[in-house]
């Protein structure tokens, strides 16, 4: 009779190895999960490292650190809430398998996106309002102290958030639910290199050129300048506007391309 188990190896070891192997297969065949495994440690290191560098440089003055942090977190939530509202609005249709129902109505894609964005504005107002109220009541920081210059900053940050959500929607159309993790994580890959909580000079020198091509970086520079009580940096605002426009065009192009691929390859059946 053949031995059914290895002799000398406790059965528990075999079972533990079997479970570990099963999860190794999952990771091997879901490369997007590496995003979770690798990205958060990288983000944390760069974010807190750069905050530390900024805080330790006397040239900036220690008093500016809380100002940068509070202005940064309130403005960051404009990008985050805009992105997450649009992305999860679309994901809701995939979770409830409602895409096919929507595709078989006269609804145009832009009408759908406008509807999601309209309600997204409500969520954004609630989310950013909560952060702003806490910053004001607990830390005596009024975001409105930035004056009317706050308006273009908020509009640009909303446009950036919505453009990034179009990339996420494109990725979900192309790669299915596997790409959903990006809906929550993608912005946190951008945050540390955008100088949200510190000037770009606090970043490692290797990262700075990358930071300078991001529209978020220039928009936050405008926000930080206004928070310091200085006049509107029009040149920086112009660069922020230009880079945001490029991002929006690229995002629309990518989402349209992925929608075409979605129709050509019949991916709608993933959600039916």
């Amino acid at each position: 009779m053949t031995e059914l188990t290895y002799t000398g190896v406790p059965a528990s070891v075999l079972r533990i190895a079997a479970i570990a192997t099963r999860h190794a297969y999952v990771l091997k065949r879901s490369p997007h999960r590496l995003f979770d495994v690798v990205m958060w440690p990288v983000v944390d290191t760069m974010l807190f490292g750069s905050i530390g560098v900024f805080a330790s440089r006397s040239a900036h003055g220690a008093a500016q650190v809380p100002l940068y942090l509070l202005a940064g977190i309130v403005l960051w939530h404009v990008v985050y809430q805009a992105q997450i509202a649009l992305s999860t609005g679309f994901l809701e249709e995939t979770w409830s398998r409602n895409l096919l129902n929507l595709f078989t109505t006269p609804t145009r894609e832009w009408e759908y996106m406008a509807g999601v964005a309209l309600f997204g504005l409500v969520k954004l107002a609630v989310g950013v309002g909560a952060v702003a109220v806490i910053a004001w009541t607990v830390y005596s920081f009024q975001i409105t102290s930035l004056g009317f210059g706050l308006l273009p900053v908020v509009v640009l940050l909303m446009a950036i958030g919505m453009a990034i959500s179009l990339f996420v929607i494109g990725l979900v159309l192309r790669f299915g639910s596997g790409a959903e993790a990006l809906a929550w994580g993608i912005l946190f890959g951008i945050m540390p290199i955008s100088g949200v909580f510190y000037p770009v000079s606090a970043l490692p020198w290797l990262i700075r050129p990358l930071a300078r091509i991001l529209p978020t970086t220039h928009t936050f520079v405008v926000g930080q300048t206004l928070a310091r009580g200085e006049p509107m940096p029009w040149g920086e605002l112009g660069i922020a506007l230009g880079t945001t426009a490029v991002l929006v065009v690229l995002a629309f192009g990518y989402a349209s391309w992925m929608l075409r691929v979605f129709r050509e390859r019949g991916y709608v059946t993933r959600y039916s």
């Binding site: 595709f103 078989t104 075409r260 129709r263 050509e264 019949g266 709608v268 059946t269």
Partner: peptide
Amino acid sequence: LLMCLGVVR
């Protein structure tokens, strides 16, 4: 059906 409905190209 999906081609007829214009959902799949």
